[in-house]
């Protein structure tokens, strides 16, 4: 009992076991899955989710949730794409700056509304999910950014780099590493955990909840914006009505699998990375196993619920504890 419980409590180990088991089972059914080619596909599929998941993780740790990241991703990708299209003479980093900063600005607005008016973030971001999508249609004039208008160097970032691993993969893990540094070694990073574990006690400990919360939403927005550029690099075009739609659910699923608690205060970069890898593997495994894409959403939904139940079970000291308390 205690050994299993300890293993389960070490969330990262648990997720790693799940990941290994998943790969093993799929490889048994379809040996082709266990190949360098599949690894390459998973590595390429993951960065988009990983970058946004780092932001969402911090939001969840602070006991909030951000449903608007799909629309932010779309908005930033369109904004950057319009720079690429209308000012092709500008260097690439200008587009990156526009994408990340516009994402940060939208995230900042989320944080501002949530903290000033003390509103539940889920409802606020449900509203901005629609609002930002509307704004991005207005901004783009409902026009798609065609592959022609995406600069060649950006597309190559999804294909190669000086060390042969595509740039977007490098960027994604760099972002994860930076997030880990931020959460572990800075005071603000640790305050995010404190706020999430006990929001009412945080001010008593001298934490300024409002600016930290706004910062978390701003970071989430900025990272969704960066994900927008990764989207443009990987898929080669940006469509106002398609780009980022439903993306929030994929990311929330990945983060929740990664052991981040929706009750705040709990969550690690390593766990999230493993969660994203697990989800990415599922995404890649489905077509290789020949499972209809129609199953994808049902699986994501099921995974979120299972992860929630596991999270609950672990925190209450196993199933017995859960049922004992539940019976009260």
């Amino acid at each position: 009992m205690s050994a299993i419980a300890r293993l389960l409590r070490a969330r990262e180990a648990g997720i790693l076991v799940m990941l290994v088991l998943f790969v093993a089972v799929v490889s048994l059914i379809q040996p082709r899955f266990f190949s360098a080619e599949t690894l390459r596909i998973v590595l390429l599929a993951v960065p988009l989710i990983l970058v946004a998941a780092m932001g969402q993780m911090m939001v969840l740790v602070a006991r909030h949730v951000d449903l608007s990241i799909g629309s932010i991703l779309g908005f930033s990708a369109i904004a950057a794409g319009m720079i690429f299209r209308d000012y092709p003479e500008l260097p690439l980093y200008v587009g990156f700056a526009v994408g990340v900063l516009s994402g940060a600005a939208l995230g900042f607005v989320n944080g501002l509304v949530v903290t000033i008016f003390k509103l539940p973030s889920i409802i606020v971001t449900l509203g901005t999910l629609s609002l930002y999508r509307g704004l991005l249609f207005i901004l783009s004039g409902s026009k798609q950014i065609d592959p022609n208008d995406i600069p060649e160097p950006l597309i190559r970032m999804a294909q190669t780099s000086p060390i042969d691993i595509p740039w977007i993969v490098i960027i994604a893990y760099a972002v994860a590493f930076a997030t880990w540094l931020f959460l572990t070694y800075t005071q603000v990073g640790r305050q995010i955990y404190a706020i999430g574990s006990n929001p009412s006690a945080a001010p008593l400990r001298g934490i300024r909840v409002m600016p930290v919360t706004i910062l978390v939403f701003t970071l989430s927005g900025a990272l969704a914006g960066l994900a927008g550029l990764i989207y443009a690099a990987r898929f080669g075009y940006v469509n106002p009505g398609i780009t980022g739609v439903g993306f929030e659910f994929t990311v929330i699923a990945a983060v929740v699998i990664g052991g981040v608690s929706i009750n705040g205060g709990v969550g690690s970069v390593l766990g999230t990375v493993l969660g994203v890898l697990l989800l990415g593997s599922v995404q890649v495994a489905l077509p290789i196993l020949g499972v209809s894409g129609f199953w994808q959403n049902a699986i994501y939904g099921g995974i979120i619920l299972i992860a929630l139940v596991i999270d609950r079970t672990v925190r209450q000291g196993g199933l017995r504890g859960l049922l004992a308390r539940g019976g009260a």
Binding site: V113, I123, V124, L126, G127, T128, L129, S130, L131, Y132, R133, G134, L135, F137, I138, S142
Partner: peptide, 14 residues
């Protein structure tokens, strides 16, 4: 246009 409608609905909620 629908884009104005999405914007209005989102704003209204908040």
């Amino acid at each position: 246009a629908i884009n104005a409608q999405l914007t209005v609905m989102g704003l209204l909620l908040i």
